[in-house]
Design a protein around this nucleic acid. Structure first.
Lengths: 347, 347
DNA sequence: TCGTGGTGTTCCAACGTTGTAACCGGCGTG
DNA sequence: CACGCCGGTTACAACGTTGGAACACCACGA
């Protein structure tokens, strides 16, 4: 608490308030003598600048928000972890918000909540469309994760993403490479989110390249990317007549894959003997599941780093920069759920 | 960004700034006529109060922090989710911080970071001792999760916790009730955190009540409550000579249990046939693991609710209230990892 | 000796809000 | 009819900080 103000420090050091302000902000034009004298007074009194006053005066709060659909989703929790770390490096504080998959809430949060509380927002949109978000983006620094403009040519905001189509294509190709021919895709959502569409696209490309037909029955619709939906979808797939049952499942998230594994376990089907399973996210949960889960890993550290740096740059320059699209790397981790066997993890 | 101020609204409504302020704050002494006129102006201009200015004037920011060791831990992610929900109900915004298990960082964050940014803090301490935290607590609203004073009689802060000793005792008793006699405890940490000590205590109480000896070799020391430590600890336990190997494992977290299950899987031991496994946390991951994991569930919603309400009360009353200790309920979920079988989840 | 220029410091005002006190008008009461 | 009271409104100052202009000081060259 200790309401130590610039004024107190100034009196102690025998200089004016403004000089103390100059020192603590690291402004130039301060002699070494006064600087050290002021710093000593700062340390002795334990002065900490008042963020509200600073914000009121400068219009900058040093506060950014990360908006994710759901914090308890491992992927977003891990991402939040990385974003926080990256932001701390840049002297920014991160406010984490949940949209809970509500489009209106996403739009509200994209605009900066209490507007003048935040300098900028990193948003992982689930329902809100690029067009809707475009209205915010001229006035307020906003970086989008994993979305991309469709339909129109113009980019409406900064984007950081992985190549979802390629990731899905490569993962499907991996399953095809195992000799599987009836490959299901679990993750086509009813609302038609961009992520879902892109992964379906990659999946279809891989099927097509291998001369395999696309069977809509193997691409059931789901509501959310969570364990429960994976479980329910896989139960239905496992219940298909013998010849029509899939021999591999490409899940659009690790959580879906974990749910699918559970359904296969209940149905008494072997993984990968009867059905191979793969996910996307690179969550630690996937590594430790039984069997360990093959997954396509987005480089979360890179995504976080690019997003924070991009946002920081946009905040710094008030002038409207052209929007950028950054693509983060991804890679495949092949594990027991597609390769079989029982290896010790190197943990 | 639409810098609409009280002044703008006042001009539009033809009243003074202060009257507008009174209206938006819901202060009494405003006639219905002016109230509606002002509200209309507010809506038309899209006025949003400036949090920084408000905070500067009132000393309240409506911002609280939740400090957890690690966001990517499912338990804390779920807890954060609940805390956010509860705080939103009370009109508070939550800033989520990670201490990364560093005592100094915990102390710094307990003090409110930039002090004057936050109204209060909910801290889940891992390393910092109650005595260290006591220095903060007189000056700054602080609620602790899951710690409790030891050694001294005085309570140094508000606490919200579950009865860890009882939870551990009941869970161990459950394992004993299955007829197991060599029950390992995975979760004794080197730093001797309060949580770890309390759970060990409950474990020992249950052993004692059943007339079973305490074998220190079955209570290996670990570093963290994560999957990796569970894996490594269980590997060592599984490598014990036949007669000394445990036939059940009580893990102090679900993550440890998941790691332990993985080690048993690698060692070719059956769960629960050879070794029964149980955890604490009630994470969703535990429900979907293979086999599904018996776990002691802390009522996270209750913990979050109690913590937020307690903190809000302390913030409201500047006067030093006596410290309170709230105990949240917990219950046992018995699943395949101790009961055997293969049931369909009712999801 | 006086300017000149640069360097270091101070003074003033303002950011948007709210608490306090003062103000105004109308009503009920003596 | 005068007075006091109270509901409703306004004026003013202050919260802690920083940008800009003004100011003092020193060394230097004219």
């Amino acid at each position: 608490m200790a309401a130590v103000r610039l004024k107190d420090v100034a009196e102690r050091a025998g200089v004016s308030i403004k000089t103390v302000s100059n020192v603590v902000r690291g402004a130039p034009r301060v002699s070494e003598a006064t600087r050290s004298r002021v710093m000593r007074a700062v340390d002795e009194l334990g002065y900490r600048p008042n963020p509200s006053a600073r914000r009121l005066r400068t219009g900058r709060s040093g506060l950014i928000a990360l908006v994710v659909p759901e914090l308890a989703t491992p992927y977003f929790a891990e991402l939040a972890h990385h974003v926080r770390g990256e932001a701390t490096l840049l002297g920014l504080t991160v406010l984490i918000e949940e949209s809970l998959g509500d489009a209106a809430e996403e739009l509200r949060l994209a605009g900066g909540v209490g507007a003048s509380l935040l300098d900028g927002v990193i948003l992982s949109p689930l329902r809100a469309t690029p067009d809707e978000l475009a209205s915010v983006t001229d006035e307020f620094p906003l970086v989008l994760l994993g979305e991309r403009t469709y339909g129109r040519n113009r980019v409406v905001a900064d984007h950081v993403l992985i190549d979802n189509v390629a990731a899905a294509r490569d993962l499907t190709a991996h399953l095809i490479g195992l000799g599987r021919t009836r490959i299901a895709a679990v993750g086509v959502d009813r609302q038609g989110s961009a992520t879902s569409r892109q992964r379906l696209e990659g999946y279809q490309q891989a099927l097509h390249a291998a001369g395999l037909p696309f069977d809509p029955r193997l691409a059931p619709r789901i509501e959310e990317f969570d364990r429960r939906n994976g479980l329910l979808a896989m139960r239905r797939l496992a219940a298909l007549p013998a010849g029509e049952r899939p021999d591999a499942v490409f899940c659009f998230s690790d959580l879906l894959a974990v749910g699918a594994q559970r359904a296969l376990h209940e149905a008494g089907l072997a993984i990968p003997g009867d059905v191979a399973v793969a996910g996307i996210d690179g969550s630690e949960e996937a590594l430790y599941s039984t069997p360990s889960l093959t997954t396509m890993v987005p480089d979360k550290a890179a995504i976080a780093s690019l997003a924070v740096k991009c946002l920081a740059a946009r905040i710094r320059s008030r002038a409207p920069l052209p929007f950028e699209v950054h693509v983060a790397p991804h890679w495949l981790e092949v594990r027991e759920s597609t390769s079989g066997g029982r290896r010790a993890l190197d943990a």
